[in-house]
Simulated assay, not measured.
Amino acid sequence: MNFSFLSPVSDAVLAHNELLPEQALGKKLKIHSAQNGIPDLDDVQLAIIGVLENRNDLNYIGEEFQLNTIRQAFYGLYPGSWNTTIADLGDIQKGETVEDTYFALKTAVSILLKKSIIPIIIGGSQDLTYANYRAYDVVTPMVNIVNVDSRFDLGDSNKPIKNNSFVGKIILDKPYNLFNYATIGYQTYFNAQEEIDLMDNLYFESYRLGEVSKDITIVEPVLRDANIVSIDLNSVKSAEVSSNQKFSPNGLNGREICAIARYAGISNKVTSFGIYEYKASKDDDMTAMLIGQMLWYFIEGVNFRVKDDDFSDDRSYQKFITLVDDQELIFYKSNKTGRWWIEIPFLSEVNNKLKRHTLLPCMHQDYLDACNNKVPERWYKAIQKNSL
């Protein structure tokens, strides 16, 4: 297994780890160290990889960064009653070119995915999500991406890839593996009207910051349907982070970003999770602790995963049928978790990407809306996307 491009966790972090109580998380991780090399991954479910690449940041001026303070904050937390084994595989250093870094990350992620290990990526610029996405080319035919971000990051895909335009590259580069793209926490004034219109025209999903802050549970179904979750730290309001990380007075707060991380963890579909746009500061403790807690909540979520979405046993669910404008909508509710799904019918006359009835995660509220003759928006967009 070739992880030769990964450099070990620094001795300073390991020395700090030695001083922690025996119950701390750092004492329970399998850590890539200079002394012992890459740990055995046979019983590992989650693997942390740092990526020290930020050259495609629009505002890059040559600054370097390390992830030591984040590791120290994370290692110092106490685990829940977890039954997962976690490895810290160290860092991917900057390659000769950014493409070299992408290749290293893509290779690492695809190795982990094939071993059914969830990569947790902590990175510089968010364009690294593109390399994460490309790792799925050999793993799964259709990918759903959720981006927690104040911006859509569609950009001009004719120009070289940057941290504000990587999604355009994902949409237009072959092989075309993107099925759905959703943005959580976007702020209208950071997005050109053309990008907002394009999101609508492509039937992608977007959840405004105000909607999310009003009711955080609305993002659970879209995260339940995601394969890749990518979080831009600039989506967090500046009061919650250290000086260099401050971006906007408005944004998600610490509780909301941790709730989103936990929803991502609980999702049976999420197979990679990334936190990007980290900017090191002298007073780094607050950002480092926030990232540590986001990692904690994601891992907590993974530990509480419940498999309940194949519905092969009709005793495991309840089925509800409603009529909206002569359209029959079929809902399923899991008896085990109380989670809801809606059926997307197979359109036989269309050469669609989904070759069978597909269940789309939804909320109880969608069923109540359907009972009141209102079509759920997620269902409508999925139908439109299938018939494109």
Rank of each mutant, 00 (worst) to 15 (best):
E96P: 05
T69W: 00
Q126V: 00
A104W: 14
L105D: 12
I86D: 03
D40K: 15
T97M: 06
Y102P: 05
T84G: 06
D91N: 15
Y75V: 03
I31A: 10
G124R: 15
K114I: 03
L113C: 08
K115D: 04
I121E: 06
G95P: 10
K94S: 12
E96R: 13
I86Y: 00
T107S: 14
E99A: 12
L77N: 15
L112P: 01
S110W: 11
A131V: 07
K114F: 03
D43T: 13
G95D: 05
L89A: 07
I86Q: 01
K106S: 04
Y133T: 14
N56G: 14
F74S: 01
N132L: 07
H32A: 06
K114M: 07
I49M: 07
N68T: 12
D91Y: 07
T129D: 03
D42I: 01
D100I: 01
Y133Q: 11
L112Y: 12
K30I: 02
A108W: 13
L52I: 11
T84C: 07
G76T: 11
S110H: 10
K28G: 08
T129C: 07
Y130I: 04
K115V: 00
A131C: 01
Y78H: 14
T85M: 13
K28F: 01
L58F: 05
A87Q: 10
L105P: 05
R134S: 02
E53M: 05
G50V: 01
Q72P: 01
Q35N: 13
D40V: 13
S116D: 14
T69E: 09
I70L: 00
D40L: 06
T97W: 02
P39S: 10
I120G: 02
I61R: 15
G50W: 04
F74D: 02
S81F: 03
S125A: 09
T97C: 07
V51E: 02
P79N: 13
K114S: 12
N56F: 06
I48V: 12
V44R: 13
I38W: 02
I31S: 14
A135S: 11
T84P: 06
G90Q: 15
L128S: 11
Y78V: 11
K94D: 07
P119Q: 11
A47W: 05
D40E: 05
G80Q: 15
D40F: 05
A104R: 15
R134Y: 03
L112N: 04
I121G: 09
A131S: 12
K94Y: 06
I121V: 08
V98D: 08
T129N: 15
T101N: 08
L113P: 00
K30D: 03
S125M: 01
A47E: 09
E63W: 06
N83H: 10
T129V: 00
I38R: 14
P79C: 01
D43L: 08
Y130R: 07
E96F: 11
T84I: 03
D40W: 02
G123D: 08
